[in-house]
Design a binder for these strands. Structure first.
Lengths: 168, 168
DNA sequence: ATAATATTGTTGTAAATGCAACAAGTTTAA
DNA sequence: TTAAACTTGTTGCATTTACAACAATATTAT
């Protein structure tokens, strides 16, 4: 009888005395999803005998999609530090997927990264290999499901972004 | 006029000739959220001068929540390999947060991990420090939002799990 | 003007991580 | 019973990653 004074969600809160454990948390699920996606892509790249790693592919794709990228901008998008981004760029240059041109951003000299023809071809071809997985996930979640997931993740990201210092 | 023969989603597909780039993808958002959570927790642990790292805390929390864990079981939940899980366990034992008891699982001898009092106290205290972030995320997403996010992530995870080989 | 700060990239180093090989035992299948 | 396969944990090594320090230049503030 007394229960009627409480909303359903408040009741659940009261009853949930046991604190939620890590493996039940959203963080765990996000990390698991992230990990599985990486494992999936890595294994797919092995199967199709891709000449570059998944991480290298991501770098190429980001460069392909953004005009006039310097290493620091790339680092931000790749979520890596400048040191390792530079190393990835060196590797891709050596293998002929990108060119590095000394250019200007404002007045500052930067190393502008540009895809070669080989780089463009490779990124397109590998993107097609990943397509079935993207499609099957879209199919499972539906259009609205994808948008809701994206919106929820954005909220998580924003809550966190405000509270961390993350300079690259 | 011809357009009426197509459903809305089919039309969008036809019109979206430009392939979605990595930084717009769900994978990117998941990875970003995962990264920010880790950075947040790591920085929080530094601020409160926690004696253990975030990864060590997770290990303690998982052990605390599961009865009779061997290293391999722990590895599966931590998403690490056995080698590194063993190393983490060694560190936690040396620092007095866990005890390692030789025990049996079926007939097999295992190293059962058990929290010490110090371990229990530490995990509880750090959990309380993380609580405000959990609450603020729950507040931002709402009860239903949290459940929807969880459900969506589960779908992603299941789609991927079927397609990867991931033995630990 | 000049000092402090910021941007851009590099190098070195330590830590984290994954992988493969190994050892010792158990289970399963032929 | 015996061989093959699996479980559990360890060791060693290569790769990835983060972080700090540095150099060179540009911007900002005093």
């Amino acid at each position: 009888m007394l229960a009627y004074h409480y909303s359903k969600s408040k009741l659940t809160t009261i009853m949930n005395k046991k604190k939620q454990s890590y493996t039940d948390s959203i963080y765990y699920q996000i990390k698991l999803a992230s990990r599985y996606m990486k494992i999936f892509a890595t294994q797919l790249f092995e199967e199709v005998k891709a000449e570059i790693s998944f991480e290298e592919f991501i770098a190429l794709d980001v460069v392909n999609d953004n005009k006039s990228m310097c290493q620091r901008d790339l680092a931000k998008l790749l979520m890596k530090d400048r040191a390792n981004t530079g190393r990835i760029a060196d590797g891709l240059k050596t293998k002929g997927y990108i060119e590095i041109n000394i250019s200007l951003k404002g007045n500052r000299p930067i190393k502008e990264i540009v895809l070669t023809e080989k780089g463009k071809k490779t990124v397109l071809s590998l993107k097609n290999k990943l397509e079935p997985m993207v499609k099957s996930m879209e199919k499972d979640l539906g259009d609205t499901g994808m948008e809701e997931l994206s919106a929820s993740l954005k909220k998580c990201i924003n809550v966190l972004k405000e509270q961390i210092k993350n300079q690259i």
